[in-house]
């Protein structure tokens, strides 16, 4: 009896450690950075002087990177998942690919950065461009998207496929009209979670040459760029107190962005679960 309640309090203690640390972190950041956030902070270009510095280029760089990453990674990821689930026969080769994709999802992001540097920046001569950064991040999120999409496709009951095939639909018609619409919500959830991971990535983008000081907003995919996490990273390494405040403010913006993406994912999932029951 004593042991039981002891364990209960121990478990409560462990749970609260995580929450307390998070709360302290949030409190620290908000107390430092909240007052710094205003319209100028968002629309100003980077500057030597902390009180005049803003995150405009980083914000736009992030938008560029996110948009391009979605455009590159989603079609490839969904198509790969559809192939693996619906077309490939379940032989040794398919198993081999499956294990490899799961492993790729766990590879440290810096490795993708080095790969991106070698292949996209140097071999394909894309330079330190938005495109090179997006391609690198696409590689990073591709395994996550593939795994999530496969799970979603697996959840569609086989009886629906049989019904469609039995009516004389081709496999592609079945996938396009029955399977994908039935699991669209879960696929979208997976994609958004993958993207929100990509938004916070710093290491691979530093490796492929995202700059810390970009005095202009990228106009084309071939322009140089920076993103919010790198801007924050840069500010935290400056000695002046003003930049620390800037970093805190930048973190708040980044947190809001990730929080927004995750909320959309949760809303979509709930709505989808309510709509489709088998």
């Amino acid at each position: 009896m004593f042991k039981d309640s002891l364990f209960k309090y121990f478990a409560i203690f462990c749970t609260s450690i995580g929450l307390i640390v998070l709360a302290l972190l949030l409190f620290d950041i908000f107390s430092k950075g909240l007052t710094r956030i205003d319209w100028d902070f968002i629309t100003n270009l980077p500057s030597r002087r902390p009180e005049r510095a803003g995150i405009l280029t980083a914000l736009f760089g992030m938008m560029w990177i996110v948009t391009l990453t979605i455009l590159i990674a989603c079609p490839i990821g969904i198509a790969a998942a559809v192939y693996l689930e619906e077309y490939s026969s379940k032989n040794r080769f398919a198993k081999f690919i499956e294990i490899n994709i799961s492993n790729l999802a766990g590879v440290p992001s810096i490795i993708y950065g080095i790969l991106g540097l070698e292949v996209f920046v140097r071999l394909l001569k894309l330079g330190n461009s938005v495109l090179a950064g997006s391609l690198t991040l696409s590689l990073l999120v591709l395994p996550v998207i593939i795994v999530a999409t496969r799970e979603a496709i697996k959840s569609v009951p086989n009886s629906l496929r049989e019904a469609s095939i039995g009516l004389g639909a081709t496999p592609w018609q079945t996938i396009q009209r029955i399977v994908l619409p039935a699991c669209f919500g879960s696929i979208l959830t997976g994609i958004i979670l993958a993207i929100s991971r990509a938004v916070g990535e710093t290491a691979p983008l530093i490796v492929v040459g995202a700059l810390v000081y970009v005095p202009f907003v990228p106009q084309t995919p071939m322009d140089q760029f920076t993103v919010l996490p790198i801007q924050i990273f840069n500010w935290t390494s400056r000695p002046q107190h003003g930049f620390v405040v800037n970093a805190a403010a930048g973190i708040i913006i980044l947190l809001l962005f990730v929080f927004l993406l995750n909320s959309i994912a949760i809303i979509l999932r709930n709505r989808h679960n309510k709509r489709v029951k088998y």
């Binding site: 049989e162 039995g166 009516l167 004389g168 639909a169």
Partner: peptide, 29 residues
């Protein structure tokens, strides 16, 4: 060939679509 041979399954398996779209599916494809 499968269009000429209809099949009804053990468990009712309507598509998660409207009643109309379920019946129209075979024509739409």
């Amino acid at each position: 060939h499968r269009k000429k041979i209809g099949m009804v399954f053990q468990k009712p398996n309507p598509f998660p679509k409207s009643i109309f779209e379920n019946v129209a599916y075979g024509l739409r494809i």
